[in-house]
C-alpha cells in the first residue's frame, strides 16, 4: 500500500511517531475493528478509530438514538434522535475520515451471530451496557479466538481489560459468578458521569490501535480501574483462573448457547 499525499498529511502525526510511521499507518488502514454497542464507550472509540484511519470499522447496535444518550454518547447529535445508532455513528465516522469503511449491523449481538461476525475482524471492542452481553462477548471471543477489550463504567468509575483468549485472563476468570439478575445496578439505575465513557472508551480504542500496530504492551492480565472522584488509576494484576468455566482446563461452557442461563436473560431486561 502506498499512502497518498493526502493520507501522509492526514496521518502525519502518526507517521512522525517512531512506533507508527508509514508502515504502522498502513497497518491501521488495513486493520478491522468491531465495536459492539454504539453507546457511551463505543462513541469515543468509534470517533478515535475513524480519525486514526482504522480501515474497516464494524458497528453493531440494535437501538436508536434517544435524547438521554446525548449526555455522553458523543458520536450522536441532537438531530440524530430517533435514527438507528449505527447509522448515526457511521455518518460521523465517515465524515471524520472518508478513508474508513464503516460496516453497520442494525442488530442485536447474540449467540447466533457474534462468533461469525467477530471472525471478520482483527479486534473487538465491547461497548455494551449489560452483563449478559459482556459475558456473551467474552465467550464468543473465546470461541472466535479474538482479542477484545472489555470495559465497564458506573457512576464515577470505570474499568477495562484486554483479553487474549486462551493466553490471558478472560472476563470469566475475574468474575466467575455473574451477579444475580437484578442484583447489579446497571447504568439506568445508577447513572454515570458522562465523561467516563470518553475516558474508558478512548482507552479501549488505544488498545485496538496498539494491537493493530503490534506496538506497546496490551492491558492483558491486568484490570485497569479508574475512579474519577479520587482521580486514581489502578492496575490490578490478575491471572488466568484455573477454575474458569470457559478457558480453564476443564471447561463447562463448550458452546455459546450454553452460557445464557447463567446470567440475566438475553432478551434485554437489564438494558438501559
Amino acid at each position: 500500500m502506498n499512502l497518498t499525499d493526502e493520507q501522509l498529511e492526514r496521518y502525519s502525526r502518526h507517521i512522525i511517531l517512531e512506533q507508527v510511521g508509514a508502515t504502522g499507518q498502513e497497518k491501521l488502514l488495513s486493520g478491522k475493528v468491531l465495536i459492539i454497542g454504539a453507546g457511551g464507550l463505543g462513541a469515543p472509540a468509534g470517533l478515535y478509530l475513524a480519525a486514526a484511519g482504522v480501515g474497516t470499522i464494524g458497528v453493531i447496535d440494535s437501538d436508536s438514538v434517544e435524547l438521554s444518550n446525548l449526555q455522553r454518547q458523543v458520536i450522536h447529535h441532537t438531530p440524530d434522535v430517533g435514527t438507528p445508532k449505527v447509522e448515526s455513528a457511521a455518518a460521523k465516522m465517515r465524515a471524520i475520515n472518508p478513508d474508513v469503511t464503516v460496516r453497520t449491523y442494525f442488530d442485536r449481538a447474540g449467540p447466533d451471530n457474534l462468533v461469525s461476525l467477530m471472525s471478520e475482524y482483527d479486534f473487538v471492542i465491547d461497548g455494551t451496557d449489560n452483563f449478559s452481553s459482556k459475558y456473551l462477548i467474552n465467550d464468543a471471543a473465546w470461541f472466535a479466538r479474538k482479542f477484545f477489550s472489555h470495559a465497564g463504567i458506573l457512576r464515577f468509575s470505570g474499568q477495562l481489560i484486554t483479553v487474549h483468549p486462551g493466553q490471558s485472563a478472560c472476563y470469566r476468570c475475574l468474575f466467575p459468578d455473574p451477579p444475580e439478575p437484578g442484583a447489579v445496578p446497571s447504568c439506568s439505575q445508577a447513572g454515570v458521569l458522562g465523561v467516563l465513557g470518553g475516558v474508558i472508551g478512548t482507552l479501549q480504542a488505544t488498545e485496538a490501535i496498539k494491537y493493530l500496530l503490534g506496538e506497546g504492551e496490551l492491558l492483558t492480565d491486568a484490570l485497569l480501574t479508574y475512579d474519577a472522584s479520587s482521580m486514581e488509576f489502578r492496575k490490578v494484576t490478575v491471572r488466568r483462573n484455573p477454575r474458569c468455566r470457559l478457558c480453564g482446563p476443564s471447561p463447562t461452557i463448550t458452546s455459546l448457547e450454553q452460557q445464557d442461563q447463567a446470567v440475566c436473560d438475553l432478551s434485554g431486561s437489564c438494558k438501559c
Binding site: I153, S186, G197
Partner: peptide, 11 residues
Amino acid sequence: VEFLYFMGGGA
C-alpha cells in the same frame, strides 16, 4: 486482597 467490582454499564 483485591475487590473487583462488577461494572455492567457502558452505554
